[in-house]
């Protein structure tokens, strides 16, 4: 796993054995680039790479690719999130080349939320290929230097290929087989769903380790600090595949309202400190939703600052 295959800074940091730190920024529902650049400005010194979401929750926004280019122009390391919901294989390959032309070196392959949750519930979904097949596609383009159609690519993309994994989703029997399947498809790093149930996550990691999967892929543990008891309850009850244990909800609810956000950050910090010790955790993906300003504090408090520099 130590062979570096791309110019990705994220890959290099992981390959050097450092715990990586990534975060994400959601593009605006408008064309103002400053929304992205300001968010990035807040976190840039505390993370190795920044994910840009692709029309998350199926709500139409500025595209991930353009937002990644803005980051690139700031000298930062973007992770291009790409969902298979909105584009067929022509558009996906085309956007991968477009990203590669700006030397974007990381991609996260996702299927994307169903369009019925967004602002265009009457729209079609594409899913010409799925997230596993998108992983295969990027690897094929990069490693074989060929399009899906078989023709050669002039200057193939050089991308470090990632995907999501949810240790908590149903059906449970296939959580680890599904990870193995993504690895077989060619995934190189994983960013997990937000972890609140640490016991269950550790169990999942153990099962992954039993199969040696932690040596085949870098697993970045996903964390989202809770802002309030209401958010904890919402995540628990309304977000599919989200596992927020009762004691976490209770801890938030037992905290006075004005202190809840502070408590949420505390929980996040405690979680990272515990997960740092888990074998197979290669880093952290901190998704502070519209709360980017909290990321530096979390990174500092967990001993993950300063970030390593590469020569």
């Amino acid at each position: 796993m130590t062979d570096v295959k791309t110019p990705s800074k994220l890959e290099k940091i992981l390959a050097a054995g450092h715990l990586a730190v990534t975060s994400e920024c959601g593009p605006p529902r408008g064309s103002d680039p400053e929304v992205i650049t300001k968010k990035a400005e807040m976190i840039k010194d505390h993370v190795d790479a920044i994910n840009i979401t692709d029309n998350q929750t199926s709500v139409t926004r500025m595209c991930s690719l353009a937002s990644c280019i803005h980051l690139k122009q700031m000298g930062l390391e973007p992770v291009l999130q790409m969902v298979t919901r909105d584009r067929n294989r022509i558009a996906l390959q085309s956007d991968i080349l477009g990203a590669a032309s700006f030397d974007i070196y990381n991609i996260l392959c996702l299927s994307g939320d169903h369009q019925s949750f967004g602002d265009c519930p009457q729209g079609q979904n594409v899913h010409d290929i799925d997230s596993m097949q998108l992983i295969q596609t990027v690897r094929h383009m990069r490693d074989e230097g060929k399009f899906l159609g078989g023709d050669d690519i002039k200057r193939p993309p050089q991308m470090f290929v990632g995907a999501a994994a949810n240790p908590f989703a149903d059906p449970f029997e296939i959580r680890v087989p599904r990870l193995a399947k993504k690895i077989a498809a060619g995934v190189e790093f994983i960013q997990t769903q937000c972890i609140y149930n640490l016991d269950k996550f550790e169990k999942w990691m153990e099962l992954a380790r039993d199969r040696g999967l932690h040596e085949k892929v870098y697993i970045l543990a996903g964390l989202t600090p809770l802002k309030s008891a209401g958010m904890a309850k919402y995540m628990k009850n309304r977000v599919p595949g989200m596992d927020v244990p009762d004691d976490v909800v209770k801890r938030m609810a037992d905290t006075p309202k004005e202190k809840q956000s502070e408590e949420g950050i505390k929980i996040c910090i405690e979680s990272i400190l515990r997960l740092k010790e888990v074998q197979g955790v290669a880093g952290f993906h901190i998704m502070a939703i519209e709360w980017e300003e909290k990321v530096p504090g979390i990174v500092e408090e967990t001993g993950l600052y300063p970030r390593p520099t590469l020569e």
Partner: peptide, 16 residues
Amino acid sequence: CAKRLLNGPCGGSTTG
């Protein structure tokens, strides 16, 4: 599958 995923499921599956 609402996304016709050939290598599913996605994260939107809860208790079946």
